[in-house]
């Protein structure tokens, strides 16, 4: 079986399905570095800033000018490898209009990171970032918002008429936990992959930070840990 990468792959998938994140060794007895962790990523922002396009660009490498606006919720999975760790990113894309809030927010639960998106040619979408962040934190039920991995995406950076100042958005990011900022273009692929991967890196970084703190104090928010417990209990 050695050398048959197909079999390796099914091992990875089987692992994911059966025992979640726990340590696991390959059925073939091979030393597997391929344990894949499921990361739930939520993509938020005003209608028309390009959330679905960003997701499609990242997952399938394509851009479609003729795409529809999203109705309800959709998600796509993508396997990525970051610093030698394998992840399956499950990216959730929702309808951005205020009206559908009550049917959108339940999907925030259990998110590992959140990509807040605006369009550089739409000042209102930038102004609403705070609203989106607030909505996310409330419905994802996250206590420690400062230590949650947000990544900010300024999409449509390929357009001519930018109306959001770089300094304004940088200031906003600074005031919001120094969230990483990426000026992206789903259309020409600029920074899209970087931004999604940054979400994983940010998550790792903050997890390490929380774990460090956790050894010092018991009262720290253990969102990630609480989640792990849930997993184990439902996969026993």
């Amino acid at each position: 079986m050695r050398g048959d990468s197909g079999c390796d792959r099914v091992g990875v998938m089987g692992n994911l399905q059966f025992i979640g994140l726990l340590n696991w060794s390959s059925e073939n007895g091979e030393d597997m570095s391929g344990k894949s962790k499921l990361l739930k990523v939520v993509l938020l922002g005003d209608g028309g800033v390009g959330k679905s396009s960003l997701m499609n660009r990242f997952v399938s490498g394509k851009f479609d000018v003729q795409s529809f606006h999203t109705i309800g919720v959709e998600f796509l999975n993508k396997d990525v490898s970051v610093d030698g760790d394998n992840y399956t990113m499950q990216i959730w894309d929702t309808a951005g209009q205020e009206r559908f809030k009550s049917l959108r927010t339940p999907f925030y639960r259990g998110a590992d990171c959140c990509l807040l998106t605006y369009a550089v040619d739409d000042i209102q979408s930038f102004k609403n970032l705070s609203m989106w962040k607030k909505e996310f934190l409330y419905f994802a039920d996250i206590q420690d918002g400062m230590n949650f991995p947000f990544v900010i995406l300024g999409n449509k950076c390929d357009v001519q008429n930018k109306v959001v100042n770089d300094s304004d958005i940088q200031e906003w990011c600074r005031l919001n936990g120094n969230a990483p900022l990426f000026l992206t273009s789903a259309k020409d692929a600029t920074n899209v992959e970087k931004a999604f991967i940054a979400a994983v890196l940010r998550l790792k970084e903050l997890e390490d930070f929380i774990e460090t703190r956790q050894t010092n104090a018991d009262t720290v928010d253990l969102k990630k840990k609480a989640k792990m417990t849930n997993n184990n209990s439902c996969c026993n």
Partner: peptide, 19 residues
């Protein structure tokens, strides 16, 4: 290579290059 580059992705979105 581009054609084969995204096989890692799971999930079907019609592959749109009609741009």
């Amino acid at each position: 290579d581009q054609d084969w580059a995204f096989i890692g992705s799971v999930g079907y979105k019609p592959d749109r290059e009609a741009e």
